[in-house]
Write a protein that binds this DNA or RNA. Structure first.
Length: 440
RNA sequence: GCGGGGAUGGCCCAGUGGUACGGCGGCAGCCUGCUAAGCUGUUUCUCUAUGAGAGCGAGGGUUCGAAUCCCUCUCCCCGCGCCA
Protein backbone atom coordinates (compact mmCIF):
# COMPACT_ATOMS: atom_id res chain seq x y z
CA UNK A 1 0.00 0.00 0.00
CA UNK A 2 1.22 3.48 -0.78
CA UNK A 3 1.24 6.42 1.62
CA UNK A 4 -2.04 8.35 1.48
CA UNK A 5 -0.50 11.61 2.59
CA UNK A 6 2.27 11.37 0.07
CA UNK A 7 -0.30 10.63 -2.64
CA UNK A 8 -2.32 13.71 -1.69
CA UNK A 9 0.80 15.88 -1.64
CA UNK A 10 2.33 14.75 -4.91
CA UNK A 11 -0.20 12.95 -7.10
CA UNK A 12 1.87 13.50 -10.24
CA UNK A 13 4.60 11.21 -8.95
CA UNK A 14 2.05 8.41 -8.59
CA UNK A 15 0.36 9.08 -11.91
CA UNK A 16 3.74 8.94 -13.59
CA UNK A 17 4.77 5.69 -11.88
CA UNK A 18 1.44 4.06 -12.80
CA UNK A 19 1.68 5.23 -16.38
CA UNK A 20 5.20 3.86 -16.83
CA UNK A 21 3.90 0.48 -15.69
CA UNK A 22 1.13 0.60 -18.25
CA UNK A 23 -1.62 1.26 -15.69
CA UNK A 24 -4.41 3.70 -16.47
CA UNK A 25 -5.37 6.72 -14.41
CA UNK A 26 -8.60 5.25 -13.05
CA UNK A 27 -7.24 3.95 -9.74
CA UNK A 28 -5.76 7.27 -8.71
CA UNK A 29 -8.66 9.27 -10.10
CA UNK A 30 -11.05 7.01 -8.23
CA UNK A 31 -9.13 7.44 -5.05
CA UNK A 32 -9.24 11.23 -5.17
CA UNK A 33 -12.92 11.34 -6.04
CA UNK A 34 -13.80 9.27 -2.96
CA UNK A 35 -11.16 10.71 -0.68
CA UNK A 36 -12.64 14.17 -1.04
CA UNK A 37 -16.06 12.93 -0.01
CA UNK A 38 -14.54 10.89 2.79
CA UNK A 39 -12.74 13.88 4.26
CA UNK A 40 -15.83 16.00 4.16
CA UNK A 41 -17.77 13.24 5.95
CA UNK A 42 -15.10 13.04 8.63
CA UNK A 43 -15.29 16.76 9.27
CA UNK A 44 -19.05 16.66 9.60
CA UNK A 45 -18.97 13.57 11.79
CA UNK A 46 -16.42 15.08 14.14
CA UNK A 47 -18.57 18.14 14.63
CA UNK A 48 -21.65 16.03 15.33
CA UNK A 49 -19.80 13.78 17.74
CA UNK A 50 -18.64 16.83 19.63
CA UNK A 51 -22.27 17.92 19.95
CA UNK A 52 -23.24 14.52 21.27
CA UNK A 53 -20.38 14.46 23.76
CA UNK A 54 -21.31 17.90 25.04
CA UNK A 55 -24.98 16.97 25.41
CA UNK A 56 -24.07 13.76 27.20
CA UNK A 57 -21.90 15.59 29.67
CA UNK A 58 -24.78 18.02 30.23
CA UNK A 59 -27.14 15.12 30.95
CA UNK A 60 -24.70 13.84 33.53
CA UNK A 61 -24.80 17.18 35.32
CA UNK A 62 -28.58 17.45 35.11
CA UNK A 63 -29.07 13.98 36.55
CA UNK A 64 -26.65 14.69 39.39
CA UNK A 65 -28.44 17.90 40.32
CA UNK A 66 -31.79 16.10 40.26
CA UNK A 67 -33.16 17.73 37.09
CA UNK A 68 -35.09 16.27 34.17
CA UNK A 69 -32.82 15.28 31.27
CA UNK A 70 -35.57 14.25 28.83
CA UNK A 71 -35.36 17.38 26.70
CA UNK A 72 -31.61 17.02 26.21
CA UNK A 73 -31.96 13.30 25.52
CA UNK A 74 -34.22 14.12 22.61
CA UNK A 75 -31.55 16.41 21.17
CA UNK A 76 -28.96 13.66 21.43
CA UNK A 77 -31.28 11.27 19.71
CA UNK A 78 -31.62 13.46 16.66
CA UNK A 79 -27.86 14.05 16.56
CA UNK A 80 -27.34 10.29 16.80
CA UNK A 81 -29.67 9.64 13.90
CA UNK A 82 -27.61 12.00 11.79
CA UNK A 83 -24.37 10.41 12.97
CA UNK A 84 -25.45 6.89 12.04
CA UNK A 85 -26.47 8.03 8.59
CA UNK A 86 -23.12 9.68 7.97
CA UNK A 87 -21.23 6.79 9.53
CA UNK A 88 -22.85 4.31 7.20
CA UNK A 89 -21.95 6.49 4.24
CA UNK A 90 -18.42 7.04 5.50
CA UNK A 91 -17.84 3.32 5.88
CA UNK A 92 -19.04 2.71 2.36
CA UNK A 93 -16.92 5.48 0.87
CA UNK A 94 -13.89 4.45 2.86
CA UNK A 95 -14.12 0.85 1.70
CA UNK A 96 -14.42 1.88 -1.93
CA UNK A 97 -11.64 4.42 -1.60
CA UNK A 98 -9.31 1.89 -0.01
CA UNK A 99 -10.04 -0.56 -2.78
CA UNK A 100 -8.68 1.97 -5.24
CA UNK A 101 -5.80 2.71 -2.91
CA UNK A 102 -4.76 -0.94 -2.76
CA UNK A 103 -4.50 -1.00 -6.56
CA UNK A 104 -2.14 1.95 -6.84
CA UNK A 105 1.38 0.64 -7.49
CA UNK A 106 4.60 1.47 -5.68
CA UNK A 107 6.85 4.29 -6.90
CA UNK A 108 9.41 3.01 -9.39
CA UNK A 109 13.11 3.34 -8.76
CA UNK A 110 14.73 5.69 -11.26
CA UNK A 111 16.92 2.93 -12.70
CA UNK A 112 13.99 0.77 -13.83
CA UNK A 113 13.78 0.60 -17.63
CA UNK A 114 10.47 1.94 -18.88
CA UNK A 115 9.00 -0.67 -21.22
CA UNK A 116 6.80 -3.71 -21.19
CA UNK A 117 7.48 -7.32 -22.14
CA UNK A 118 10.22 -9.50 -20.68
CA UNK A 119 12.22 -9.15 -23.90
CA UNK A 120 12.74 -5.51 -22.91
CA UNK A 121 14.31 -6.27 -19.55
CA UNK A 122 17.70 -4.63 -19.40
CA UNK A 123 20.79 -6.84 -19.44
CA UNK A 124 22.97 -6.13 -16.41
CA UNK A 125 25.73 -8.77 -16.35
CA UNK A 126 26.70 -12.32 -17.19
CA UNK A 127 28.76 -14.79 -15.18
CA UNK A 128 30.13 -18.26 -15.84
CA UNK A 129 30.85 -20.24 -18.98
CA UNK A 130 27.81 -21.36 -20.92
CA UNK A 131 27.71 -24.51 -23.03
CA UNK A 132 26.11 -23.21 -26.19
CA UNK A 133 24.90 -25.29 -29.13
CA UNK A 134 25.96 -23.60 -32.36
CA UNK A 135 22.42 -22.89 -33.50
CA UNK A 136 21.80 -21.01 -30.25
CA UNK A 137 24.90 -18.86 -30.47
CA UNK A 138 23.26 -15.86 -32.04
CA UNK A 139 20.54 -15.87 -29.41
CA UNK A 140 23.12 -16.28 -26.64
CA UNK A 141 25.16 -13.34 -27.90
CA UNK A 142 22.15 -11.14 -28.16
CA UNK A 143 20.89 -12.06 -24.68
CA UNK A 144 24.27 -11.27 -23.15
CA UNK A 145 24.89 -8.21 -25.32
CA UNK A 146 28.16 -9.74 -26.40
CA UNK A 147 29.40 -10.16 -22.82
CA UNK A 148 28.70 -13.88 -22.50
CA UNK A 149 31.53 -16.36 -22.15
CA UNK A 150 30.77 -19.67 -23.82
CA UNK A 151 31.99 -23.00 -25.02
CA UNK A 152 30.50 -24.27 -28.27
CA UNK A 153 28.98 -27.73 -28.19
CA UNK A 154 28.26 -29.99 -31.11
CA UNK A 155 24.97 -31.33 -30.04
CA UNK A 156 22.08 -29.98 -28.07
CA UNK A 157 21.93 -31.59 -24.62
CA UNK A 158 19.03 -33.86 -23.84
CA UNK A 159 16.02 -32.14 -22.32
CA UNK A 160 15.51 -32.79 -18.62
CA UNK A 161 12.16 -34.36 -19.46
CA UNK A 162 13.93 -37.15 -21.32
CA UNK A 163 16.75 -37.47 -18.81
CA UNK A 164 14.54 -37.99 -15.79
CA UNK A 165 12.67 -40.72 -17.63
CA UNK A 166 15.80 -42.42 -18.92
CA UNK A 167 17.50 -42.39 -15.53
CA UNK A 168 14.31 -43.31 -13.70
CA UNK A 169 14.56 -40.42 -11.26
CA UNK A 170 11.04 -39.04 -11.63
CA UNK A 171 7.61 -40.31 -12.61
CA UNK A 172 5.35 -37.75 -14.20
CA UNK A 173 2.69 -40.03 -15.68
CA UNK A 174 1.66 -41.54 -12.38
CA UNK A 175 1.73 -38.12 -10.74
CA UNK A 176 -0.61 -36.90 -13.47
CA UNK A 177 -2.88 -39.86 -12.80
CA UNK A 178 -3.38 -38.98 -9.17
CA UNK A 179 -2.91 -35.19 -9.12
CA UNK A 180 -2.95 -33.91 -12.69
CA UNK A 181 -0.49 -32.06 -14.85
CA UNK A 182 2.50 -30.25 -13.36
CA UNK A 183 2.89 -32.72 -10.50
CA UNK A 184 5.69 -35.25 -10.07
CA UNK A 185 7.07 -38.09 -8.05
CA UNK A 186 10.81 -37.73 -7.53
CA UNK A 187 12.74 -40.95 -7.18
CA UNK A 188 16.09 -42.28 -6.11
CA UNK A 189 19.03 -39.87 -6.37
CA UNK A 190 16.88 -36.95 -7.50
CA UNK A 191 15.17 -37.05 -4.09
CA UNK A 192 18.54 -36.78 -2.41
CA UNK A 193 19.64 -34.07 -4.79
CA UNK A 194 16.62 -32.01 -3.79
CA UNK A 195 17.37 -32.38 -0.08
CA UNK A 196 21.04 -31.61 -0.73
CA UNK A 197 20.14 -28.39 -2.55
CA UNK A 198 17.92 -27.27 0.31
CA UNK A 199 20.57 -27.97 2.93
CA UNK A 200 23.30 -26.39 0.85
CA UNK A 201 21.30 -23.19 0.36
CA UNK A 202 20.43 -22.95 4.06
CA UNK A 203 24.08 -23.35 5.04
CA UNK A 204 25.15 -20.86 2.39
CA UNK A 205 22.80 -18.16 3.65
CA UNK A 206 23.36 -18.94 7.33
CA UNK A 207 27.02 -18.12 6.76
CA UNK A 208 25.92 -14.72 5.49
CA UNK A 209 23.96 -13.78 8.56
CA UNK A 210 20.53 -15.17 7.69
CA UNK A 211 18.40 -16.88 10.32
CA UNK A 212 16.79 -20.04 9.00
CA UNK A 213 13.01 -20.07 9.46
CA UNK A 214 10.52 -22.71 8.49
CA UNK A 215 7.11 -20.98 8.42
CA UNK A 216 3.50 -22.20 8.43
CA UNK A 217 2.56 -23.55 5.01
CA UNK A 218 -0.92 -22.04 5.14
CA UNK A 219 -2.07 -18.52 5.93
CA UNK A 220 -5.28 -16.70 6.72
CA UNK A 221 -6.74 -14.28 4.21
CA UNK A 222 -6.19 -11.11 6.16
CA UNK A 223 -2.43 -11.31 6.79
CA UNK A 224 -1.87 -12.75 3.33
CA UNK A 225 -3.78 -9.93 1.65
CA UNK A 226 -1.65 -7.46 3.56
CA UNK A 227 1.50 -9.16 2.28
CA UNK A 228 0.76 -9.48 -1.41
CA UNK A 229 -1.58 -8.23 -4.11
CA UNK A 230 -4.77 -9.33 -5.76
CA UNK A 231 -2.99 -10.70 -8.84
CA UNK A 232 -1.14 -13.21 -6.70
CA UNK A 233 -4.41 -14.35 -5.14
CA UNK A 234 -5.93 -14.91 -8.55
CA UNK A 235 -3.03 -16.59 -10.27
CA UNK A 236 -0.91 -18.31 -7.68
CA UNK A 237 -2.83 -19.31 -4.60
CA UNK A 238 -4.64 -22.48 -3.62
CA UNK A 239 -7.55 -21.98 -1.22
CA UNK A 240 -8.47 -24.51 1.46
CA UNK A 241 -12.15 -25.28 1.14
CA UNK A 242 -13.46 -25.47 4.71
CA UNK A 243 -11.15 -23.00 6.39
CA UNK A 244 -10.02 -19.44 5.98
CA UNK A 245 -6.62 -20.64 4.77
CA UNK A 246 -4.47 -20.41 1.66
CA UNK A 247 -1.47 -22.56 0.78
CA UNK A 248 1.60 -20.34 0.61
CA UNK A 249 3.08 -19.69 -2.84
CA UNK A 250 6.40 -18.66 -1.30
CA UNK A 251 7.79 -18.28 2.20
CA UNK A 252 8.08 -14.57 1.42
CA UNK A 253 4.45 -14.30 2.52
CA UNK A 254 4.52 -15.88 5.99
CA UNK A 255 7.99 -14.45 6.68
CA UNK A 256 6.89 -10.94 5.77
CA UNK A 257 3.66 -11.25 7.71
CA UNK A 258 5.49 -12.72 10.69
CA UNK A 259 6.28 -9.22 12.01
CA UNK A 260 3.00 -7.53 11.10
CA UNK A 261 1.70 -4.91 13.52
CA UNK A 262 5.01 -4.89 15.34
CA UNK A 263 7.25 -2.01 16.27
CA UNK A 264 10.87 -3.07 16.09
CA UNK A 265 13.83 -1.86 18.05
CA UNK A 266 16.22 -0.14 15.61
CA UNK A 267 19.07 -2.25 17.00
CA UNK A 268 17.36 -5.39 15.70
CA UNK A 269 17.66 -4.16 12.12
CA UNK A 270 18.51 -5.39 9.61
CA UNK A 271 16.68 -8.69 10.09
CA UNK A 272 17.86 -11.30 7.60
CA UNK A 273 15.68 -14.39 7.29
CA UNK A 274 16.21 -17.47 5.17
CA UNK A 275 12.74 -18.91 4.74
CA UNK A 276 12.52 -22.56 3.81
CA UNK A 277 9.22 -24.05 2.73
CA UNK A 278 7.33 -25.85 0.05
CA UNK A 279 5.64 -23.46 -2.37
CA UNK A 280 2.23 -24.16 -3.88
CA UNK A 281 1.25 -22.45 -7.11
CA UNK A 282 -1.78 -22.78 -9.32
CA UNK A 283 0.10 -21.45 -12.37
CA UNK A 284 -3.26 -20.19 -13.58
CA UNK A 285 -1.78 -17.71 -16.01
CA UNK A 286 0.65 -20.20 -17.55
CA UNK A 287 -1.50 -22.41 -19.75
CA UNK A 288 0.58 -24.03 -22.44
CA UNK A 289 3.94 -22.87 -21.07
CA UNK A 290 6.51 -25.43 -19.98
CA UNK A 291 3.92 -28.15 -19.87
CA UNK A 292 6.40 -31.01 -19.71
CA UNK A 293 8.82 -32.01 -17.01
CA UNK A 294 9.40 -30.33 -13.68
CA UNK A 295 10.39 -26.85 -14.82
CA UNK A 296 7.03 -25.26 -13.97
CA UNK A 297 5.15 -27.24 -11.34
CA UNK A 298 2.44 -26.83 -8.70
CA UNK A 299 4.70 -27.49 -5.74
CA UNK A 300 8.41 -27.24 -5.04
CA UNK A 301 10.74 -26.21 -2.24
CA UNK A 302 12.35 -22.84 -2.02
CA UNK A 303 14.93 -21.25 0.23
CA UNK A 304 14.10 -17.57 0.24
CA UNK A 305 15.98 -14.50 1.41
CA UNK A 306 13.94 -11.87 3.20
CA UNK A 307 15.24 -8.64 4.73
CA UNK A 308 13.61 -6.06 6.97
CA UNK A 309 15.75 -2.94 7.12
CA UNK A 310 15.92 0.82 7.56
CA UNK A 311 14.76 2.74 4.48
CA UNK A 312 18.11 4.39 3.86
CA UNK A 313 19.80 0.98 3.61
CA UNK A 314 17.43 -0.86 1.34
CA UNK A 315 19.11 -0.16 -2.00
CA UNK A 316 22.38 -1.51 -0.65
CA UNK A 317 20.61 -4.59 0.63
CA UNK A 318 18.94 -5.03 -2.74
CA UNK A 319 22.37 -5.39 -4.28
CA UNK A 320 23.45 -7.64 -1.41
CA UNK A 321 20.64 -10.18 -1.74
CA UNK A 322 21.08 -10.19 -5.51
CA UNK A 323 24.76 -10.91 -5.07
CA UNK A 324 24.04 -13.66 -2.52
CA UNK A 325 22.01 -15.62 -5.04
CA UNK A 326 24.51 -14.96 -7.79
CA UNK A 327 27.32 -16.28 -5.57
CA UNK A 328 25.25 -19.32 -4.71
CA UNK A 329 24.48 -20.11 -8.34
CA UNK A 330 28.07 -19.49 -9.33
CA UNK A 331 29.23 -21.86 -6.59
CA UNK A 332 27.10 -24.49 -8.32
CA UNK A 333 28.97 -23.72 -11.56
CA UNK A 334 25.87 -22.55 -13.36
CA UNK A 335 26.15 -19.78 -15.97
CA UNK A 336 23.61 -17.00 -15.56
CA UNK A 337 22.72 -13.45 -16.45
CA UNK A 338 21.10 -10.73 -14.39
CA UNK A 339 18.43 -8.48 -15.89
CA UNK A 340 16.82 -5.31 -14.58
CA UNK A 341 13.12 -6.04 -15.04
CA UNK A 342 11.26 -3.38 -16.98
CA UNK A 343 8.44 -1.30 -15.53
CA UNK A 344 5.62 -3.14 -17.26
CA UNK A 345 6.61 -6.52 -15.81
CA UNK A 346 6.89 -5.52 -12.15
CA UNK A 347 4.27 -6.32 -9.54
CA UNK A 348 2.48 -3.47 -7.78
CA UNK A 349 4.70 -4.04 -4.77
CA UNK A 350 8.04 -3.80 -6.55
CA UNK A 351 9.96 -0.59 -6.75
CA UNK A 352 12.65 -2.48 -8.63
CA UNK A 353 13.39 -6.09 -9.44
CA UNK A 354 16.31 -8.05 -10.81
CA UNK A 355 15.73 -11.45 -12.33
CA UNK A 356 18.54 -13.93 -12.25
CA UNK A 357 18.31 -16.22 -15.23
CA UNK A 358 20.32 -19.40 -15.60
CA UNK A 359 21.45 -20.74 -18.96
CA UNK A 360 19.57 -23.88 -20.02
CA UNK A 361 21.62 -25.41 -22.86
CA UNK A 362 18.91 -27.76 -24.09
CA UNK A 363 16.45 -24.90 -24.37
CA UNK A 364 19.13 -22.62 -25.78
CA UNK A 365 18.07 -19.74 -23.61
CA UNK A 366 18.15 -18.11 -20.18
CA UNK A 367 15.29 -18.87 -17.81
CA UNK A 368 14.39 -17.22 -14.52
CA UNK A 369 15.66 -19.02 -11.42
CA UNK A 370 15.54 -16.15 -8.94
CA UNK A 371 13.76 -12.87 -8.53
CA UNK A 372 15.20 -10.12 -6.37
CA UNK A 373 12.80 -7.39 -5.29
CA UNK A 374 12.93 -4.21 -3.30
CA UNK A 375 9.39 -3.44 -2.18
CA UNK A 376 10.57 -0.37 -0.23
CA UNK A 377 7.88 0.56 2.31
CA UNK A 378 4.94 -0.67 0.22
CA UNK A 379 4.63 -4.10 1.83
CA UNK A 380 5.68 -2.86 5.28
CA UNK A 381 2.96 -0.22 5.25
CA UNK A 382 0.10 -2.60 4.62
CA UNK A 383 1.62 -5.06 7.11
CA UNK A 384 2.19 -2.17 9.54
CA UNK A 385 5.79 -3.09 10.39
CA UNK A 386 7.62 -0.16 11.91
CA UNK A 387 10.72 0.63 13.91
CA UNK A 388 11.36 3.26 16.54
CA UNK A 389 13.29 6.41 15.71
CA UNK A 390 13.79 9.60 17.73
CA UNK A 391 11.32 11.28 15.34
CA UNK A 392 8.63 8.64 15.79
CA UNK A 393 7.90 5.28 14.27
CA UNK A 394 8.81 4.68 10.63
CA UNK A 395 7.99 1.87 8.26
CA UNK A 396 10.80 -0.55 7.53
CA UNK A 397 11.69 -1.52 3.99
CA UNK A 398 11.26 -5.13 2.91
CA UNK A 399 13.21 -7.03 0.29
CA UNK A 400 13.17 -10.57 -0.93
CA UNK A 401 15.03 -12.76 -3.31
CA UNK A 402 14.98 -16.41 -4.12
CA UNK A 403 17.95 -18.20 -2.69
CA UNK A 404 17.27 -21.44 -4.45
CA UNK A 405 14.15 -23.09 -5.85
CA UNK A 406 14.58 -26.84 -5.99
CA UNK A 407 12.84 -27.97 -9.17
CA UNK A 408 14.32 -25.27 -11.37
CA UNK A 409 17.77 -25.83 -9.97
CA UNK A 410 17.46 -29.58 -10.52
CA UNK A 411 16.49 -28.98 -14.13
CA UNK A 412 19.42 -26.62 -14.40
CA UNK A 413 21.84 -29.22 -13.10
CA UNK A 414 20.38 -31.95 -15.30
CA UNK A 415 20.67 -29.78 -18.41
CA UNK A 416 24.07 -28.22 -17.69
CA UNK A 417 26.02 -31.19 -16.39
CA UNK A 418 25.28 -34.05 -18.74
CA UNK A 419 28.29 -36.25 -19.34
CA UNK A 420 29.19 -38.12 -22.51
CA UNK A 421 28.02 -41.28 -20.79
CA UNK A 422 24.57 -39.81 -20.30
CA UNK A 423 24.92 -39.42 -16.55
CA UNK A 424 24.56 -36.22 -14.56
CA UNK A 425 27.57 -34.78 -12.81
CA UNK A 426 26.95 -33.23 -9.37
CA UNK A 427 28.61 -29.82 -8.90
CA UNK A 428 31.65 -30.02 -6.63
CA UNK A 429 30.18 -27.90 -3.84
CA UNK A 430 27.13 -30.14 -3.54
CA UNK A 431 28.90 -33.49 -3.23
CA UNK A 432 29.32 -33.23 0.56
CA UNK A 433 25.53 -32.80 0.70
CA UNK A 434 24.47 -35.48 -1.77
CA UNK A 435 27.04 -38.08 -0.82
CA UNK A 436 27.41 -39.04 -4.50
CA UNK A 437 29.17 -37.51 -7.50
CA UNK A 438 26.77 -38.36 -10.26
CA UNK A 439 23.30 -39.49 -11.04
CA UNK A 440 23.46 -42.62 -13.13
C1' G B 1 -13.91 -30.38 20.71
C1' C B 2 -15.33 -29.11 26.24
C1' G B 3 -14.60 -26.06 30.74
C1' G B 4 -12.07 -21.94 33.21
C1' G B 5 -8.95 -17.44 32.90
C1' G B 6 -7.20 -13.46 29.91
C1' A B 7 -6.25 -9.34 25.73
C1' U B 8 -6.01 -1.50 27.95
C1' G B 9 -0.90 3.42 24.38
C1' G B 10 6.44 1.28 22.81
C1' C B 11 6.32 -1.96 27.55
C1' C B 12 3.91 -2.97 32.44
C1' C B 13 -0.55 -2.10 34.90
C1' A B 14 -5.37 0.32 37.38
C1' G B 15 -10.19 1.01 36.09
C1' U B 16 -18.34 -2.66 37.92
C1' G B 17 -22.05 2.91 33.24
C1' G B 18 -20.14 9.65 33.45
C1' U B 19 -15.68 10.28 28.83
C1' A B 20 -8.44 6.02 30.49
C1' C B 21 -5.08 6.15 36.64
C1' G B 22 -0.25 5.34 37.51
C1' G B 23 4.65 3.41 36.53
C1' C B 24 8.75 2.13 33.15
C1' G B 25 11.09 3.37 28.64
C1' G B 26 11.82 7.07 24.59
C1' C B 27 12.12 12.28 23.23
C1' A B 28 12.47 17.67 24.51
C1' G B 29 13.44 21.26 28.15
C1' C B 30 14.88 22.99 33.21
C1' C B 31 18.34 22.51 37.17
C1' U B 32 22.93 21.74 40.22
C1' G B 33 31.08 22.32 38.07
C1' C B 34 30.34 17.12 34.92
C1' U B 35 27.65 12.60 35.50
C1' A B 36 23.83 10.39 38.31
C1' A B 37 19.50 11.92 40.66
C1' G B 38 15.48 15.41 40.54
C1' C B 39 11.71 18.60 38.19
C1' U B 40 8.41 19.95 33.84
C1' G B 41 6.31 18.71 29.34
C1' U B 42 5.55 15.10 25.63
C1' U B 43 4.50 10.09 23.68
C1' U B 44 -1.19 6.31 18.92
C1' C B 45 -4.29 7.37 14.59
C1' U B 46 -7.57 10.76 11.76
C1' C B 47 -9.48 15.61 10.22
C1' U B 48 -6.72 22.11 5.59
C1' A B 49 -5.98 21.53 12.65
C1' U B 50 -4.25 27.71 18.44
C1' G B 51 -9.31 23.31 17.57
C1' A B 52 -11.68 18.68 17.53
C1' G B 53 -12.62 13.49 16.81
C1' A B 54 -11.38 8.42 17.27
C1' G B 55 -8.91 4.65 20.04
C1' C B 56 -9.19 -0.22 25.73
C1' G B 57 -8.27 -7.82 20.75
C1' A B 58 -12.32 -7.57 16.19
C1' G B 59 -17.46 -6.86 14.91
C1' G B 60 -22.46 -6.04 16.45
C1' G B 61 -26.20 -4.66 20.40
C1' U B 62 -28.36 -2.03 24.93
C1' U B 63 -27.85 3.30 26.71
C1' C B 64 -28.31 10.31 26.56
C1' G B 65 -23.46 8.18 27.56
C1' A B 66 -19.82 1.59 27.27
C1' A B 67 -12.88 -0.22 28.67
C1' U B 68 -17.10 -1.38 32.04
C1' C B 69 -23.46 -4.64 30.55
C1' C B 70 -25.24 -8.33 26.45
C1' C B 71 -24.24 -11.31 21.76
C1' U B 72 -20.83 -13.30 17.93
C1' C B 73 -15.82 -14.05 16.51
C1' U B 74 -10.15 -14.11 16.82
C1' C B 75 -5.82 -15.01 19.50
C1' C B 76 -3.12 -16.34 24.17
C1' C B 77 -2.77 -19.13 29.04
C1' C B 78 -4.50 -23.37 32.36
C1' G B 79 -7.12 -28.04 32.76
C1' C B 80 -9.79 -32.17 30.23
C1' G B 81 -10.52 -34.90 25.66
C1' C B 82 -8.51 -36.35 20.85
C1' C B 83 -4.02 -37.05 18.15
C1' A B 84 1.34 -37.80 14.41
Amino acid sequence: MIDVRSLRNSPSEYYSSAEKRGFGREEIDGFFRLDEEWRSLVRNLNALRKQRNDFSAEIGKIVKSGGDPEETKKKVKSVNDEISKLEARQKEVEKERDQFLSLIPNILHESVPVASGDENNKFVRFSGTARVFKEDLENFRSLTEGNGIFELIEKRPESHVDVIQRLNIADLERAAKISGARFYFLKNRLVKLELALINYAIDFLSQRGFTAVSPPFMMKYEPLSRTTDIDTFREALYKIEDDDLYMIATSEHPIGAMLMDEILDPHELPIRVAGISPCFRREAGAHGKDTKGIFRVHNFYKVEQFIFCRPEESWDFHEEITKNTEDLIRSLEIPYRVVNVCSGELSRLNSKKYDIEAWFPSQGTFREVASSSNNTDYQARSLNIRYRTPDGNRYVHTLNNTGLATTRMMVCIIENFQTDQGTIRIPEALIPYTGFEEIT
